[in-house]
Amino acid sequence: MKKFGMLTQILIGFVLAIVLGAIFGPKIAVVQPLGDLFLRLIKFIVVPLVLASLVTGITSLNNVNKLLSIGGKTIAYFMATTFMAVVIGLVVGFAISPGKGLDIEMPTQNAEKTEIPGTIDTILNIVPVNPFESLSTGNILQIIFVAIAFGIAITAVGEKAKPLANFFDALALVMYKITGVIMKFAPIGIFGILAPIVGNYGLEVLMPLLKVILAVAIACSIQLLVTYSIAVRTMGKMSPITFLKGIAPAGVFAFTTASSSATLPISIRNAEENLGVSKEVSSFVLPLGSTINMDGSAIYQGIAVVFIAQFFNVDLTFANIVTVVLMSILVSIGAAGVPGAGLIMLTMVLQSVNLPLEGIALVAAIDRILDMFRTSVNVMGDASAAVVVQNLENKKKSA
Score class of each variant (00 low, 15 high):
residue 172 A to L: 08
residue 172 A to P: 01
residue 173 L to T: 03
residue 173 L to V: 01
residue 173 L to A: 04
residue 173 L to D: 10
residue 176 Y to T: 01
residue 176 Y to N: 03
residue 177 K to G: 01
residue 179 T to C: 02
residue 179 T to D: 00
residue 183 M to Y: 07
residue 183 M to L: 13
residue 184 K to D: 06
residue 185 F to G: 12
residue 186 A to L: 12
residue 186 A to E: 05
residue 187 P to D: 07
residue 187 P to H: 02
residue 192 G to H: 06
residue 194 L to N: 02
residue 195 A to S: 05
residue 197 I to S: 09
residue 197 I to V: 14
residue 198 V to P: 09
residue 198 V to C: 10
residue 199 G to M: 11
residue 200 N to W: 01
residue 200 N to L: 06
residue 202 G to N: 08
residue 203 L to M: 09
residue 203 L to Y: 05
residue 204 E to K: 14
residue 205 V to P: 00
residue 205 V to N: 01
residue 207 M to H: 10
residue 208 P to D: 04
residue 210 L to C: 03
residue 210 L to R: 09
residue 211 K to D: 08
residue 211 K to W: 02
residue 212 V to P: 06
residue 214 L to M: 13
residue 214 L to C: 07
residue 215 A to S: 13
residue 216 V to C: 05
residue 216 V to M: 05
residue 216 V to E: 04
residue 217 A to I: 09
residue 217 A to V: 08
residue 217 A to G: 04
residue 220 C to F: 03
residue 222 I to Q: 05
residue 223 Q to A: 14
residue 223 Q to C: 09
residue 224 L to G: 06
residue 226 V to F: 09
residue 226 V to D: 02
residue 228 Y to H: 12
residue 229 S to E: 06
residue 230 I to M: 14
residue 230 I to T: 06
residue 232 V to M: 10
residue 232 V to W: 06
residue 233 R to W: 14
residue 235 M to E: 14
residue 236 G to I: 13
residue 236 G to E: 10
residue 238 M to F: 11
residue 238 M to T: 11
residue 239 S to L: 13
residue 239 S to T: 11
residue 241 I to L: 13
residue 241 I to P: 04
residue 242 T to I: 12
residue 242 T to F: 01
residue 244 L to S: 11
residue 245 K to R: 11
residue 246 G to C: 12
residue 247 I to E: 04
residue 247 I to H: 10
residue 249 P to W: 13
residue 250 A to T: 08
residue 250 A to H: 13
residue 250 A to D: 03
residue 251 G to P: 12
residue 252 V to F: 15
residue 252 V to C: 15
residue 253 F to D: 07
residue 255 F to W: 15
residue 256 T to G: 14
residue 256 T to V: 15
residue 257 T to V: 10
residue 257 T to A: 12
residue 259 S to N: 09
residue 259 S to F: 13
residue 259 S to L: 07
residue 260 S to Q: 07
residue 260 S to A: 13
residue 261 S to P: 00
residue 261 S to R: 13
residue 261 S to Y: 11
residue 263 T to A: 06
residue 266 I to Q: 12
residue 269 R to S: 15
residue 270 N to L: 08
residue 270 N to V: 10
residue 272 E to L: 05
residue 274 N to G: 03
residue 276 G to I: 06
residue 276 G to Q: 09
residue 277 V to F: 08
